[in-house]
Design a binder for these strands. Structure first.
Lengths: 229, 229
DNA sequence: ACGAACTGTAACAAAAGTGTAACATTGAAA
DNA sequence: TTTCAATGTTACACTTTTGTTACAGTTCGT
């Protein structure tokens, strides 16, 4: 899905410049000419990134900033502030208000696109689910910690990778070859049976006080997380 | 609360000029005519910014500078040094001693006010985000000082940068490459193992009397600050 | 120029993880 | 029930990864 970029800007000439460059870069472009209209439309559009003019006819851009940051569904949306020349002195407070980046007019379209790309890339990684959960197993891919029944399970790198792989598609059965390809990488010659050993180690590591039979063996097919139906 | 500005200056005519301009700009003005008196009064007044004459009857302004920087409660106060014409050659060392800015006489009052405003604004914002904390580690990104268990830890520049990087995302695992990109910059060819050595030095520097196991090794992945969950 | 502090690398030691074979056990088809 | 291939389990030699140390080249302030 192509990212949606919303601009709140009253200078007509700048709007068309933005629209042209942003669409050329493969993004959808949305626009409002006043802060008031912007706040309304932004809620409908739910853009992936917002460009705010610092000075708008009805309210300063910082007001939109506060508005966005205080709305749960929008608060993570990256914001780039556009300021006219000579407004730099206020920038610090602008950044404190909650915008993620700023550009001083006049700016090169190339620069703008670069910053947009950077921010979108960053927010994409942010949204990446860093916590995988399955039954009583919790896995934090940021910290590389795994918990089973709220107790930390100590896994080696291979066991960790296998579990992560399985947990991304809970219940689905994977052949040993698929696991090998994913965890070891393709064209690495390792015996199939090696998987069995690692599965054994994984099961053991996940065995806390209580029995945790989370990994199912599908005879002559492979392994999967043990989900009903 | 209006900001308090303290001047240590012996030239009578300059003092009245300063007083007039600073009060006009809405700040409170305090004054001492000698270094000795200045050091006493500054402790009482606790000003938000200090103007120091380079040459004073009893001691050079740099002595006051050192004095201020060595006092916990004053050490963050921004200092502007005022120098007579021809003393520029000494400025380098003056900046190193710990003043934040300087002006050569004669200067325009406008210029002085501009610098005062800039420094006050900066130090105001600084106090918000300049301190990173993690468990028993405290890090002041302004002064580049690091404290572990309330004792100062002496880190080299590289160690400092690595720690700062890790502390911005506590608990998150970073690969050696990510650390390299962030601390050394991209496309700089340095061996991965170099990180290991710096991590070792960092760990050692953070080892005060008590064991400080704050840096976790995630085998075949990288390092992170050691946080639960 | 001299010395102190800082860097990056190599080399070796220690620790942790890995893959394989050999044997035990299981489960389903004959 | 028997049989046999698939899987579970274990032990162990081997590899990889990381910790640690020493050192030579640099930088930087005095």
């Amino acid at each position: 899905m192509t990212a949606k970029i919303f601009s709140v800007e009253d200078e007509e000439s700048l709007v068309s410049l933005l629209e042209y460059n942003i669409k050329s870069s493969g993004y959808d472009f949305y626009h409002a000419g006043t802060a008031y209209q912007g706040m309304i439309d932004i809620q409908k559009v739910k853009p992936d990134l917002i460009l705010l003019d610092w000075m708008l006819p009805d309210q300063p851009g910082t007001e939109i900033c506060k508005f966005i940051r205080s709305h749960e569904s929008l608060s993570e949306t990256p914001i780039i502030m556009l300021t006219a020349k000579g407004e730099e002195s206020d920038l610090v407070s602008g950044l404190n208000i909650g915008c993620d980046d700023y550009l001083s007019k006049p700016f090169s379209p190339k620069e703008l696109i670069a910053r947009i790309n950077a921010l979108l890339r960053r927010s994409k990684n942010k949204n990446k689910e860093s916590i995988l959960e399955f039954q009583n197993i919790k896995m934090n891919t940021d910290t590389h910690r795994v918990y089973c029944c709220n107790k930390e399970a100590k896994l080696g790198p291979r066991e960790y990778s296998i579990l992560e792989f399985l947990m991304k598609k809970p219940g689905r059965v994977f052949t040993r070859q698929q696991i090998l390809d994913s965890v070891w990488g393709t064209n690495v010659y390792v015996s199939d049976r090696t998987i069995d050993v690692h599965i054994r180690r994984l099961r053991q590591a996940l065995s806390t006080t209580e029995e945790c039979k989370v990994i199912r063996t599908i005879r002559s097919s492979g392994y999967s997380l043990d989900i009903e139906a």
